[in-house]
């Protein structure tokens, strides 16, 4: 499992070489979004008011940003769960030309398929360490602040060696967590056996 230090905008070549389990650190331009922004664009028919071609890393996140002496200060940041945006995953990858999505909880089959087609990956954090991350992020700008509010707005970040993140969906459609599920299922069987709960155990059906 390799380690990569990548700078956005990412090229197709940058992400096609990444395999599940690899570690990445990210620099360059990125933007944030949550449900409200995706609903606003994809379900309510609005147009994204900025260009994503030089900013093709999307971070699923609702940061805490406060205004101090006329400029933005990032108080806290932690990638949020991506799976809840699965409904818009394919569209965001294809229509926004994304090369990477940063978030927790991985994403589903449909997004993985779009990633395979377009050349895009999903990466996950391995810690809850907002204080280490905010030192790698400068808030540059914000879009749709008035329409969507601070947490759901699209924040423009300049990032510097932000990471480490683990590649959990690669551009061949492999999922790191699907692989891990297999070994967890095996250990679960052993754990249940140790508790005296054999494979033959069935819940008495009450409803």
């Amino acid at each position: 499992m390799a380690e990569y230090h990548l700078t956005s905008p990412l090229s197709e070549e940058d992400v096609r070489k990444l395999k599940i389990g690899d570690t990445v650190y990210l620099s360059g331009n990125a933007f944030t979004c949550r449900s409200r922004l995706q609903r606003y664009i994809f379900d309510e028919g609005n147009t994204l008011p900025f260009d994503t071609s030089d900013r093709n890393i999307l971070i699923h996140n609702g940061p805490i940003v406060i205004k101090e002496n006329g400029s933005w200060r990032l108080v806290s940041f932690m990638p949020t769960s991506s799976i809840r945006f699965e409904k818009w995953g394919e569209k965001s990858v294809k229509e926004w030309g994304l090369r990477m999505i940063v978030g927790k909880t991985t994403m589903g089959e449909q997004t993985a398929q779009a990633m395979k087609e377009m050349g895009c990956v999903h990466v996950s954090p391995r810690s809850v360490s907002p204080n280490l991350w905010i030192d790698s992020i400068t808030v540059e700008d914000v879009y749709l602040f008035d329409e969507l509010g601070s947490i759901e707005a699209a924040w423009f970040f300049k990032i510097n060696e932000l990471g480490p993140f683990i590649v959990d969906i690669d551009s061949e459609g492999n999922n790191y967590f699907d692989r891990l599920d297999e070994s967890i299922a095996e250990s679960k069987k052993n754990a249940l056996e140790q508790l005296g709960i054999g494979e033959e155990f069935k819940f008495t059906k009450l409803y």
Partner: peptide, 26 residues
Amino acid sequence: AAKRGLEATLRSMDMSRERENPLCVD
């Protein structure tokens, strides 16, 4: 990797006390 993740989390948690900022963004 898990050890580094736990260590990074602990370091960040300790920094939150000094910086008086939230332990997690949520």
